[in-house]
Structures are given as structure tokens and as C-alpha cells.
Design a protein around this nucleic acid. Structure first.
Length: 638
RNA sequence: GCUGGCGUAGCUCAGAGGUAGAGCAGCUGAUUUGUAAUCAGCAGGCCGGGGGUUCGAAUCCCUUCGCCAGCUCCA
């Protein structure tokens, strides 16, 4: 029964139709079996919720994707009910539906251990089997205060203080919770769920508030969907770049340098392959590569505004009574370069790209593999152009962004445009022009985008690019920001056709974000199975016996000569063992040389995950590898 | 930073007051092998660092460093 619609009309005084405030269940004369709520204009309604507006209602069943949000929210309540039965004195925080599940925050007084989760899950199961109806009631703030103060639910009381009339509570059995809803009709619908983890979380996310204990869980209407979701979590665990990074010998971390990776030989090959492609693409798009100092004087950072706004994230050092900062951004250095001399409008745009090494202090608790580090290489560029050139420049950046992502097989990109915040510099006219330039450029390139009203930086509006990896996870990588601040602070100018000085427009942009983080994303996206052009080791020659070593040397030399990364596994192991080890190292090509191949000057070809592909001449192999390496990246799963 | 958990051999992990263990990896030797693990032997440890309790500490306590999970996707 998917996609069933029903129109509801709100009655005016004395006219036919449904009275506003009527619960959805009563408003529907013919309530279809299996309906758990409805959606209208993006708003979700449970069947007990009151109708507020007329409209075209889409009925939801458990099969509807939108219904999951309701489902998870009710699962959170089920969790809270179970916890309250087991720990009667528990204080409830909040328990929303989130992406892929739900959580609920509790104050247990005495912290509980994650070994309690199965017990709680069992209690939830019992409660679900009891199949209690979920009912809704409205009350005034006063009534709500009385209700929750009776139970000593101080967190709920705090929430009520921020609410006006029309407070709703949802109940199932003895359990009542302050809640906006919507919810399922009854708890019996929640059959398949799993509690996943127990962690700490500050009340309202503020570290000055008490630490609550948060229980995360997930639930699905069918056992298959739940199993599939748990499978996805398992897949993500297997793809963890920290694990694969060690298994493949790409990088490591040491306590001596928290938050900064040590890149091993193979990891550097990978980084270099990404950088080589990056340089090639930037040359083609008319960028000039520059390199600015890592340590610059405090005075520069005072002038750029970083001293006032970013000092807490910066590292400092001093020598000869002079204070310096380790750069957290590349822009001031590039701006100094621009300011070195006079510029003619004929020389603009100047697109200065830099793979700049920057350092930012991050709280120790937020460090996470390559994803959150303290030192990294930003694939930065700063474009200085005339106002007339702005739209074209942004369009060029957008094109380059899509081109570069596509090279890595990342074709799903989500774009967000952030507009002027309340606290900002520059005139409204400048903001109009800049926001229009970003909008026009995105439209011109045919990108779909969402607008984040008021989320721009104080110095200018921006576009953010998010890529979706093969597991559908979203990573913010690229950004394009227009900057009114720098040209003003550093009094940048160029001489226009009118022989007068003008202020250039400055654009900051990054595409991959951090090279290190991007490589981490690639590791997880490919699961370590890198396409040929990125693979740290592209081929390994596997002689069957020592007799084939000369022939194997010959094969390896030919491949190395053709520019491929290739080695010989000359160990006194059986071929099965050599294959296994090469498969585990995820080497794309295994070239087996036995007596027959040695005699014919050929190899027996084996591809990672594919097995034996038969005998092939070395010439045709090299040709095949060249075209594979040059082409677009193949599908992620081979 | 804060809360909780975890640091034992290169890796994955056992041991939970009484002589530090296994598998894999490593080394040595044998084996010369045909598409995902050949066999045997050997070696390997300030049980993360520091302090304490105890006759005795990997084990209990304190402290410090690091790692892992999380720290509003708002009732």
C-alpha cells in the first residue's frame, strides 16, 4: 500500500470538513490497515497526532522510508521505558531518532557498564511483546511541570521551561515522556532492534553541564533490514582506514607525535600518486603552484585577524625575542606574495595553488586516525580576480571539483551554499554580488545545491562540497569561499583598464581538503583495493621455483621499465602462499612465472579477487595495464 | 579538554596477587613447490611510563602518556 494519499480539509466555522486539532485517526473515515501515520509538506504525523492543516496527506506504513524516523523515535521511548523499569530512579534526558537509529540519554546517578545492555535489550523485548498502545495527551506547562516534578525528572523540567503552550506527552503503559512526537500506534510494532553502544554525552552537548550516559541503538521493521544494517556497520569496521593502513603498511602513529601521521614508503607512493594527478589537473586548469613558509611572524597573524580569532588553534614558537606562529592556513602567505608588486588587470586572474603543510591544535579527544589530525597538507588555492571575472572563476573551480572527484570514482556529490551570517563584514551590496556569483556559477554548472541561510563565514559566503563514498557516508571535502576581509586588511589592489587602482576579489578554495584525510577516505571508499593507478604495489611477480628467477627478473624489469611499481616474491614458498600474501596486500596484478611461461616468455595472469586469467604475453599485459591506469577508476567492487 | 573503556612479543589476543602464554609474523634449516597458509627448530617481553600498597604486583591504588567510543542529527 505504498504512496496512498488522502486529502484532508480543515473546516471553517460551520462548513464541512475536519475540525482542526482532530487526531489523524479520527479524521480518516477509512483508516487503511498498516498505516502508522502520514506526511504532509515534509511534516510527519503519528495517528494520534492532531491535524493542524488541510492538505494532501501521504499515508505512511512501516515500509515508507519516512516512517523510520517515527519508528526510531518510538524505539527510543521503548528503551527509556525499559531502563526506567530496571532503574526506577533514573533521570531521563532526551531520546531522538538519528541517522540509522536512535539514542537516549540517561542520568543513572551511578554510571552503569555496557554489560548491562543485553539486560536492557531483553526488557525492551518483553515490553514490545506486551504491545502497549502509545497514546498522546496535551497539557499546559503548569500541568507538565507538576507531572515531571512528581517524578523528579529535573532534565525534563528544564526542557519544559523552554516551552510554551501545547506541550505534548506520549504514554505507553506506566511510562510517560515529554515528547513532540510523532510516534507509532503501539510498541508491538518494534520487533527487531539492537542496542549498540553506551557512551558519555554532556547534557545538551555542553561540557559545563553534567555528563549523562547515552545508549545508542538501531531498529528496523523487519529482521532482514536489521541484519542488513548490522552488516553495513560490520563492513564499515572492516574498512577502517586505521586498520587497513597498518595491514598494508601505509602509515603509523606514535605517542611522540599525537595527531600527526608517519607515512611509510607505500603510503607515500599513494600520497604522491594523488598529488601527481592533482598537479596535472591544476596545470591544465591554469593554476600556478606556489609554496609559502610554514613559520611566519606573529605580526602577520595579528594583521590577518588570526591572532584575534584563531589563536586557540595555533602553535607558537619564538627565537631571538621574536614570536612566530606555525601556519594554520596558507592564505596570509599567499596574500603577502600577491602584495609584493603591482598587478595589472591583464594578469588576473592569478590562481595560486599550494599544497601547504599546516598545523592546527585539536583537542586530544577529537583526534581520529587520518580524519582528524593536527598537522596536514591542504590542497589549497587562492584566486585573485576582478569582480567581472568572479562568476567564471567560481565556475572553473566547480568544474575542477567535479573532475577531480570523478577521477576517484566519487560521482555522488552534495553541494551546500552558505549565505551571509548576522555577524559579518562588508556591505550588503558586496554580499549580494558574492552570493549571486556563487549561485550563478552553481546553476551554470548544473549543480543541485541546498542553501544554508546565515551559515557563511563572517568574511564571505561559501560553497561546501560533500562526497558520498561507496557506503553512502558523507564527507565534507571541497570548499569555495569568497573573502572580503583579506583584500581590505592587506590593501590589495590591481591597476584596471581605467589606470586606477581597484580592489581584487579573493577566493579561497580546497578540493580534497586535507591530502591525508582524503587518502583516509580513499582507503575506506576502496576498502584498500586501490585502482591500478593508485595501488602502492601494482604488480608482483611470483616464480614457481628458483629455476624461474631469471625469467621473473626479466618480467619485473620490463614492467618497471614501463613505469609500473613491481617486485618479485622470490621466497622459497609454494605458489599458493605467495598468492595468498599478495591478495592480502591487495596487489592488483599477480604475474606467475613457471617453467612453461619462462620458456614462452609469458606470464600467467592473476587479478586481485578474480583469480586465474590465463597466460598472456608481457607486451599485451603492459598495454592493458597502461590503458587501465590511464582510464577512469574502475568500479569500486571489482 | 571532559566522561567511560583499553594499553601484555612486530600483529591479534589469553593470563586478574605467587616462575609471563598462544596463534600469526620474524630468524635458522629442510623443502623447489602450478593459482588464498609446506614442515621443523630457535629467538622474541622494564605486562605504556612514574609512584605507592604488599613478604610478593602484569594483576590492587594514585598519577602520567597514548589509543578507542562519545560529547544536541535539539522535548
Amino acid at each position: 500500500m505504498p504512496d496512498e494519499y488522502i486529502d484532508i480539509e480543515i473546516s471553517a466555522e460551520g462548513a464541512p470538513g475536519v475540525k482542526a486539532g482532530t487526531p489523524l485517526r479520527e479524521a480518516l473515515t477509512d483508516f487503511p490497515e498498516g498505516s502508522i501515520g502520514a506526511e504532509v509538506d515534509g511534516e510527519l504525523l503519528g495517528i494520534e497526532d492532531p491535524i493542524k492543516q488541510g492538505g494532501h496527506y501521504r499515508l505512511l506504513t512501516l515500509d515508507s522510508p519516512q516512517a523510520l524516523k517515527i519508528f526510531w523515535h518510538s524505539a527510543a521511548h521503548l528503551l527509556a521505558q525499559a531502563v526506567k523499569r530496571l532503574y526506577p530512579d533514573v533521570k531521563l534526558g532526551i531520546g531522538p531518532a538519528i541517522r540509522d537509529g536512535f539514542y537516549y540519554d540517561f542520568d543513572f546517578g551511578q554510571p552503569i557498564s555496557s554489560e548491562e545492555l543485553p539486560r536492557i535489550e531483553d526488557e525492551m523485548r518483553r515490553l514490545a511483546e506486551a504491545d502497549q498502545p502509545i497514546t498522546r495527551a496535551e497539557m499546559t506547562p503548569k500541568e507538565a511541570r507538576e507531572l515531571f516534578s512528581r517524578e523528579g525528572q529535573n532534565y525534563k523540567l528544564e526542557l519544559i521551561r523552554g516551552l510554551n503552550e501545547g506541550i505534548s506527552v506520549y504514554s505507553q503503559g506506566e511510562f510517560t515522556d515529554l515528547c513532540r512526537g510523532p510516534h507509532l500506534p503501539s510498541t508491538g510494532l518494534i520487533k527487531h532492534f539492537r542496542l549498540l553502544s553506551l557512551t558519555g554525552a554532556y547534557w545538551r552537548g555542553d561540557e559545563r553541564n553534567p555528563m549523562l550516559q547515552r545508549i545508542y541503538g538501531t531498529a528496523y521493521p523487519t529482521a532482514e533490514q536489521l541484519a542488513e544494517h548490522l552488516q553495513r556497520l560490520e563492513e564499515a569496521r572492516k574498512r577502517d582506514h586505521r586498520l587497513i593502513g597498518r595491514q598494508l603498511g601505509l602509515f603509523s602513529f606514535h605517542p611522540e607525535a599525537p595527531g600527526t601521521p608517519f607515512w611509510h614508503q607505500k603510503g607515500v607512493v599513494l600520497l604522491n600518486a594523488v598529488e601527481e594527478y592533482w598537479r596535472e589537473a591544476h596545470r591544465r586548469h591554469g593554476y600556478a603552484e606556489v609554496r609559502t613558509p610554514i613559520i611566519l611572524s606573529r605580526g602577520l597573524w595579528e594583521r590577518s585577524g588570526h591572532w584575534d580569532h584563531y589563536r586557540g588553534n595555533m602553535y607558537f614558537t619564538s627565537q631571538e625575542d621574536q614570536e612566530f606562529a606555525v601556519k594554520p592556513m596558507n592564505c596570509p602567505g599567499t596574500v603577502l606574495m600577491f602584495g609584493e608588486r603591482q598587478w595589472s588587470y591583464r594578469e588576473l586572474p592569478w590562481r595560486a595553488a599550494e599544497l601547504g603543510i599546516i598545523h592546527r591544535y585539536e583537542k586530544s579527544g577529537t583526534l581520529h586516525g587520518l580524519f582528524r589530525v593536527r598537522g596536514f597538507t591542504m590542497d589549497d588555492a587562492h584566486i585573485f580576480c576582478t569582480p567581472e571575472q568572479l562568476v567564471d572563476e567560481i565556475r572553473g573551480v566547480v568544474r575542477l571539483v567535479y573532475e577531480i572527484y570523478a577521477r576517484f570514482g566519487l560521482t555522488e556529490v552534495e553541494v551546500e551554499l552558505s549565505t551571509r551570517p548576522l555577524d559579518r563584514i562588508g556591505t550588503d551590496q558586496m554580499w549580494d554580488r558574492a552570493e549571486n556569483a556563487l549561485t550563478d556559477a552553481l546553476k551554470g554548472e548544473g549543480s543541485e545545491f541546498e542553501i544554508n541561510e546565515g551559515e557563511g563565514a563572517f568574511y564571505g559566503p561559501k560553497i561546501d562540497f560533500h562526497i558520498l563514498d561507496c557506503l553512502g557516508r558523507r564527507w565534507q571535502c571541497g570548499t569555495v569561499q569568497i573573502d572580503f576581509n583579506f583584500p581590505e586588511r592587506f590593501q590589495l589592489e590591481y591597476i584596471g583598464p581605467d589606470n586606477q587602482p581597484h580592489t581584487p576579489v579573493m577566493i579561497h578554495r580546497a578540493i580534497l581538503g586535507s591530502m591525508e584525510r582524503f587518502v583516509g577516505i580513499l582507503i575506506e571508499h576502496y576498502g584498500g583495493d586501490f585502482p591500478l593507478w593508485l595501488a602502492p604495489e601494482q604488480a608482483v611477480v611470483l616464480p614457481i621455483t628458483d629455476d624461474e628467477h631469471p625469467a621473473a627478473e626479466n618480467v619485473a624489469e620490463r614492467l618497471s621499465g614501463a613505469g609500473f611499481r613491481c617486485r618479485i616474491d622470490g621466497r622459497a614458498e609454494k605458489i599458493g602462499r605467495k598468492i595468498r600474501d599478495a591478495e592480502l596486500l591487495k596487489i592488483p596484478y599477480m604475474l606467475i612465472v613457471g617453467a612453461r611461461e619462462a620458456a614462452d616468455g609469458k606470464v600467467s595472469l592473476r587479478r586481485r579477487h578474480q583469480g586465474d586469467l590465463g597466460v598472456q604475453s608481457i607486451e599485451s599485459l603492459i598495454e592493458q595495464m597502461h590503458s587501465e591506469a590511464a582510464g577512469d577508476s574502475p568500479a569500486v567492487t571489482e
